[in-house]
Simulated assay, not measured.
Amino acid sequence: MDCEDMIITEEPNLTERKEGGKRGRKPGRKASSEKIDMKAKLERSRQSARECRARKKLRYQYLEELVTDREKAVFALRAELERYKQWSAELDAGRLPEGFQALLEELGMLKQE
C-alpha cells in the first residue's frame, strides 16, 4: 500500500510541474504594458545611440588635436635640424654661423651653474 500511495502522490506533482514549468512567451497574450515597454526600450536605444555618436565625435576631435600638436612638433624639430645642418656647413667652411655664438653662451651659462 505504501508503494501505491507514493505512485499516486507523485503523478499529480508531475503534471503540475509540466503545466507550470513552461517557458517562453505565451501566444496571444500581448498586453498594453508590453507595448509601453517596447516604446521605452526603443527610446533608450535611441538615447544610447545619440550618446555613442557624441562620444565618437569627441574621440575624433581629441585625436585630430593630438595629430595637429604632433605635426607642429615635427615641423619645429625639422626646422631645428635644418638650422643645425646650415651651422655645420658654415663651420666646415670656416665661418662662425649667425646665432651660434648665442647658443654657445647659453650652453656656457648652463655649464657654469
Rank of each mutant, 00 (worst) to 15 (best):
C3Q: 15
E4T: 12
M6D: 04
M6Y: 10
I8S: 12
T9H: 08
P12N: 07
P12H: 13
N13S: 11
N13G: 11
E16W: 09
E16T: 07
R17W: 10
K18Y: 10
K18S: 11
G20H: 15
G21D: 02
G21R: 00
G28P: 00
A31Q: 04
S33V: 02
E34H: 02
K35N: 02
I36D: 00
A40I: 13
L42V: 08
E43M: 07
R44S: 08
R44A: 03
S45K: 15
S45P: 01
R46S: 07
Q47D: 11
A49N: 07
A54V: 14
K57P: 05
L58W: 04
L58H: 12
Q61D: 10
E64V: 10
E64Q: 11
V67E: 00
R70F: 09
R70S: 03
E71I: 03
V74D: 06
R78P: 00
A79C: 03
R83T: 01
Y84D: 09
K85I: 01
W87D: 00
E90L: 02
L91H: 01
L96P: 03
P97L: 03
P97Q: 00
E98M: 08
Q101G: 06
L103A: 08
L103Q: 08
E106D: 13
L107F: 11
G108A: 04
